[in-house]
Amino acid sequence: MAEKKVFFKSLKDLPKEDFFVQGHRACPGCGETIAVRLIMKAVGPNCIVITPTGCLEVVSSPYPYTSWAVPWYHVAFENAAAVASGVEAGLKALMRKGKLEKKRIHVIAIAGDGGTADIGLQALSGALERGHDFLYVCLDNEAYMNTGIQRSGSTPYGAWTTTSAVGKIMPGKLQWKKNVPAIAAAHDIPYVATACPAYPLDLVNKAKKAVEIDGPAYLHVLTPCVPGWRIPSNLSIKIARLAVQTGIFPLYEVEDGRLHVTVKVPKRKHVKEYLKLQGRFAHLTDGEIEKIQKRVDMESEKLGLGPRET
């Protein structure tokens, strides 16, 4: 196994400069933009970013106001990975044929969970299988937030959204969250990781490692959404941290097929600590909360996370 390399020893090692800059129009407290700002700091200016349709595209690009200090391209919703394939192949061919100066340019797709888990999954799978040298980042806010909070394959069990309504007979989403990092890992690509902005040092090191690796890398980042999760704007980070501390969103890396947890959780908090802060789960009964806890216990055991706090 490759030697464990730490790119940033402390957050003070991050560049002062932003490559995803001020003046974007994301909601106050947006978890997604915290993650993007940090990922871009980690990656630096030598890249081309492809963003499919979604919150990030909309808040960062209304003509003539772009929040990108790096080359950036939006094409459509379902094809970020395919466009990234073309960008990577184009650069490769032009450099090999002497039409463009040879240097490593990182190709990065930054998509949402709708554009990744649902409509973009085919393009993502194709690009991972073909082995393009690129990083695919999924900013997972667990629903179609840009269109107004609709359920995606990545929405967790029991969550209210505008298309998994809570009513007299329906308790929100009836299905479990799709495990996209596991799908990515099933392509046997060199690097898959999960991250979250509440653990910024873990996040930036993973982002940097992911772009430095040759071949496809996949980074799945949990990003709280203030209007969609029905949370106060100041709690995005706190809630993201609780997702990790409860074992709901474990932080790990899969390198060369081997999974290891990067943020240890010696004593897991009860899931209700996480759920009770969010309006999207406000309707859950104790029975449903226990059902979620059981599922998390089972998943945590598989990953070797610690026992639950009593």
Binding site: V21, Q22, G23, H24, R25, S60, S61, Y63, P64, Y65, T66, S67, W68, A69, V70
Partner: peptide
């Protein structure tokens, strides 16, 4: 193609 040729112009949009 309504490409934005200048980088980081949202700095001119005060939020």
């Amino acid at each position: 193609a309504s490409m934005i040729p200048q980088p980081a112009t949202s700095r001119f949009y005060k939020t």
